[in-house]
Design a protein around this nucleic acid. Structure first.
Lengths: 362, 362
DNA sequence: CTGAAAGCGCTAACAT
DNA sequence: ATGTTAGCGCTTTCAG
């Protein structure tokens, strides 16, 4: 009571030893009562009372760091991803949401390692598995074969929407190709033919797959691909807006596409903004379908391919936890290599049939 | 090389002792070279080489948990908040984004403690400051006076948009009252008089302040408040939609409000969806202004009061770090008690003048 | 039922 | 310049 610092809220935390001393027992007796299930040796009711009282009085809180050191388990999962580049990333939010809820329900916490870019992530990732997390979830990583060398070998890793299937890293993704196929087939069915694909970045397999799905839809419908049918850019509104504008500039004077299949909701939003800036209406002049079904899509009343983002996160956590537990008992469990979830078209208000008359690009 | 487990990716991590053994020096010699800046004692070039080579060969990674135990610093910040209730929370995303970036730029990580509700958060929060984080950021906590009892006393805490000013917990928020005042003044200036406020939940000071700002705008304009001018609900689209519908049911047959001031973008979005479901147009029939300027607002082209969400996060990190550093050197620095940031009207496309003729509530 | 001892991996202080 | 010792707070044998 003698040293009450000015701030009033900063004091050394009580340790098990402190509690033991206060209760007149050993530190480990205290440990025993404060962790009933773990320790086999049982404590008498009387001692137990005293320890509990002491702990209460001293406001004892177990130190997870020490505990973690001792039993090599922090009950913390690491999430590596690009939280936000230029724009806050809704995709991240939704997967993270699933991850966080599943983790919480299993008594795990998640620490977020917000990498700047995947280019140099490996510098950072090797440092992350350093005992403070029990395993890693890679979120939409852009990695390649050499990754298996820099990924930590002493902690399990799983990936959501990885760019490359690293051996030994279970991965969870949705059916990009199939989703794109469905979306474009729907557009085709609506009567559209000049369908522009505003895609995701080069080097992203997800983006590649969506483009492939687009092309297969035409193929299977027996319809010829429109010339110069795809542009690619970042998975952002700015990326979509820029890519579309470039394409329009390039095709000035030609006929306006009747529909756009965007590789993400953010891209779709950028396209809508760009079209509206040019005085064009969606969907009267141009139909648009996005991908992801993030909050973006709901807010913009955007028709889009839904992928089960939260579920992907939950599955990743479940798989990672299995891996962690297996490792603890010395097993060599590797889990599934890959799981791909289906997508589904959510039709809101950016889909319509083609115009009677063609519009020219201004 | 004898024991290559099936999974191939799971092995015990090399320790400093291992590295030392490999290099033929003591563990702490190894420590010395692997942490150049910290240790004063310098190592000869020859030994240094050997240690480095050994570390490389063994793929050594420092164990942060052990390090943290030893010097009582984990370089990770804890973020406590409700990541998502029924709907993913864009407010959270944007503040988190700022927090994460600022933290990363200062070599800190952040672990997210996703509480279910603030009602029982205190059970969890007391466990969080357990050595694995150096301090806590409370995000939009609903707390009250007793909080100072359950908040950790041995780790600094700061809050963003707290519901209550806990002594010793610096807090960062935006000017809710002023922002609401500005928004409603603007509506008034546009000529609207029957302005409905669809507010945030009871028990949230932020929501209270926004209501107060609304009322002050009328007062200062010398205009009488419309009867039954406010409803309150959750800070979500569903909350806004429900609250508005209830109000409309209650006032069936009376004149439709000319404008709505929503306490958040999500609420505004819910209102828009509800109005459109009733065949009403925004802003031709009803003007709407939201609050927050999250991605929601951009996607929905919603006019809204912007608050500097990312900046609030960054400020919180800076303040928390100062507190942590001060505590380390035994200081009793408490920092600012409160900092409130200004808001700003972003006019997109949901604001117009009042209709010529009144509409009745169906 | 309870205490003593050792160790998790690292760092800091003190010897050499 | 390098090694030794001790200890961070907790857990887990192993004795008593």
């Amino acid at each position: 009571m003698s040293d009450t610092p000015t701030s009033g809220r900063v004091r050394r935390a009580a340790t098990l030893a402190d509690v033991g001393r206060e209760a007149g027992v050993s530190a480990m007796a205290a440990s025993a009562v404060l962790n009933a299930p773990t320790t086999s040796t049982r404590i008498s009711g009387e001692t137990r009372e005293r320890v509990l009282a002491a702990a209460q009085k001293l406001n004892y809180r177990p130190n997870q760091t020490a505990r973690g050191l001792a039993d090599r388990r922090m009950n913390t999962l690491g999430l590596v991803g690009i939280l936000a580049g230029d724009e806050p990333n809704l995709y991240f939010l939704e997967v993270f949401n699933g991850i966080s809820q599943e983790a919480a329900s299993r008594g795990q916490n998640v620490t977020v390692f917000n990498v700047g870019s995947w280019q140099d992530a490996y510098h950072q990732v090797r440092m992350y598995c350093d005992g403070r997390v029990d395993g890693l979830i890679l979120l939409a990583p852009i990695i390649d074969a050499p990754a298996s060398e820099w990924l930590p070998e002493h902690a399990p890793v799983v990936a959501v929407h990885p760019n490359y299937q690293v051996p030994g890293v279970p991965n969870f993704r949705s059916d990009d190709e199939g989703g794109a196929f469905l979306a474009v087939s729907h557009l085709l069915q609506l009567g559209h033919r000049r369908i522009l694909h505003v895609g995701g970045p080069e080097g992203s397999v997800g983006a590649d797959l969506r483009l492939q799905g687009y092309e297969r839809a035409f193929r299977e419908a027996g319809i010829e691909l429109p010339p110069d049918h795809a542009v690619r850019g970042a998975y952002t509104a700015a990326g979509g807006s820029g890519a579309l504008e470039d394409w329009l500039q390039l095709h000035r004077g030609k006929r306006l596409p009747e529909a756009i299949f965007a590789a993400s909701d953010a891209i779709a939003l950028g396209c809508i903004e760009r079209l509206q800036a040019r005085g064009l209406r969606v969907p009267e002049d141009v139909s648009i379908v996005g991908f992801d079904n993030t909050l973006y899509a709901r807010a913009a009343r955007l028709s889009t391919m839904a992928q089960p983002l939260g579920k992907l996160g939950r599955l990743a956590v479940q798989a990672l936890l299995k891996l962690i537990d297996a490792r603890r008992i010395g097993g060599s469990y590797t889990g599934v290599e890959e799981e791909v979830l289906p997508t589904e078209l959510i039709d809101r208000s950016t889909l319509a049939g083609p115009r009677r008359s063609d519009l020219l690009i201004a």
